[in-house]
């Protein structure tokens, strides 16, 4: 049963992947909901520009995003130097940077799913809640947000999966450092580059498939629970 035991490298890569993807989703979710709300509900000049900017990671090569991140968030970068000087945070070549890269690559998928669910919320339910004495903020948290749950679950799944698979932007921005930025795809890529690494690569491959399936099933179960709640 030795083959069932994970090697230290596999454990590190798996843990790191979960940490990076988890933080990427958790960190971008509130911002994603806010951005989706603004795009769905607010009219302002330059809206299509903002919309385009958010969708850029979908159409650009990930390496380009990674390079832009390096320029902006590197230790000498515009934002990076400020972050280091004032908050003491370093993003380049750390797992935090990997999470940022994953979050940005996954952001358009998250926003799309959340925005669709927001647009599907019956605004007349919101005005009904207003006449019952709830202010706009309370209406958002008690009516709008709960009704968006299916879209939020879908958005989180997409973003989580996209983050797990992030490769190009990550390797460009934070490089491929074992136990710091070497996530599953990077570890797998490394194994394919060394002689005799095929078996290890296949094992990582199986782990990746398992992780993806787990995320899918978990989100499906959550969505079903929500649907059952609505049916009462």
């Amino acid at each position: 049963m030795e083959f069932l035991e994970l090697t230290p490298l596999e454990i590190e890569a798996l843990k790191l992947s979960l940490k990076v993807a988890g933080w990427a989703v958790a960190g971008s979710l509130p911002i994603g909901i806010l951005v989706a709300w603004v795009l769905a509900r607010v009219q302002f000049p330059g809206k299509s520009l903002v919309d385009g900017l958010i969708h850029l990671p979908l159409v650009l090569p990930p390496v380009v995003i990674g390079y832009l991140l390096l320029v902006l968030f590197g230790r000498r970068g515009l934002v990076g130097s400020w972050l280091y000087d004032t908050l003491g945070i370093t993003l380049a070549f750390t797992w935090k940077g990997a999470a940022l890269a994953a979050a940005i690559m996954a952001f358009p998928l998250l926003v799309r799913a959340v925005r669709l669910s927001l647009e599907a919320v019956d605004r007349e339910l919101e005005s009904a809640a207003r006449t019952l004495g709830a202010g706009p903020v309370r209406v958002f948290f008690t009516i709008t947000l709960p009704l968006m749950v299916p879209g939020i679950i879908a958005g989180m799944l997409l973003a989580f999966a996209r983050s797990l698979g992030e490769f190009g932007a990550t390797i460009t921005f934070v490089s491929n450092l074992r136990s710091e930025t070497q996530t599953l795809p990077l570890a797998l890529y490394t194994l394919t580059q060394i002689p005799g690494g095929e078996q290890g690569a296949m094992r990582l491959c199986v782990i990746a498939v398992g992780l993806g399936m787990f995320a899918l099933v978990a989100s499906e179960l959550l969505a079903r629970r929500f649907a059952a709640r609505m049916e009462g």
């Binding site: 019956d122 007349e124 339910l125 005005s127 009904a128 809640a129 207003r130 006449t131 019952l132 004495g133 709830a134 202010g135 009516i143 709960p146 009704l147 749950v149 709640r229 609505m230 009462g232």
Partner: peptide
């Protein structure tokens, strides 16, 4: 005065019950 401060109850044609609440 915003609707939530008017103290006016409104019964809509289609009920508009909140589907996620009992």
């Amino acid at each position: 005065v915003p609707p939530e401060k008017r103290r006016i109850g409104y019964i809509f044609q289609e009920g508009r019950l909140f589907p996620h609440l009992s």
